[in-house]
Simulated assay, not measured.
Amino acid sequence: MDIFSLPHLIILLLIVMALFGTSKIKNIGGDLGSAIKSFRQAMKEEEQLSSSKAPDAATKSLEHIRETEAIEETTAETLHTKS
C-alpha cells in the first residue's frame, strides 16, 4: 500500500483534527495564507525596486543591509565573548 493513499490521508486528517481542533487548524491556515501573501508582496516590491531607474534607492537599500550585517556581527561577537 502507498503511504499517501486516500484512506491514510483521511485517517491522518482525523488525528490532526482530534489533536488540534478545527479552530486551531483554521488559525494555522489563516496564518500560513497571510505569510504567503506578505512574501509575495515583498517579492513584488523587490522587483519594482530592482527595475526602477533610481540608483539612489538601491544604494540606500545596500547601505541598510550593510548596517544590519554590521550590527549582527557585533551582537554575535558580544554574545560569543560573554559565553
Rank of each mutant, 00 (worst) to 15 (best):
I65C: 00
L19R: 02
A76W: 10
K53C: 02
N27I: 05
Q41E: 14
L62K: 01
L19K: 04
G33E: 14
D2E: 11
V16W: 04
V16I: 14
L12R: 12
M43G: 02
S38G: 02
I11W: 08
K37F: 14
L12Q: 11
A76Q: 07
R66S: 09
I25C: 02
S83P: 00
E77A: 08
E69S: 06
S50I: 11
D31A: 06
K26F: 11
L6I: 09
L6Y: 13
A42G: 13
A54H: 10
P7F: 05
H8K: 12
I3R: 12
A18T: 08
R40I: 04
K60I: 07
E47V: 05
D56G: 06
M1Q: 05
G30Q: 15
A58E: 03
S61R: 13
S51N: 09
F39T: 10
L12S: 10
L49D: 02
I36Q: 02
K60S: 11
M1L: 06
M1G: 10
E63N: 10
S61Q: 04
D56Y: 06
R66Y: 09
E45L: 05
A57W: 03
M17K: 04
A35N: 15
L32S: 11
T59L: 09
P55F: 05
S5E: 09
S83N: 10
I65E: 01
F4P: 00
A58I: 07
A35Y: 15
G30M: 15
N27T: 06
G30C: 12
S34Q: 15
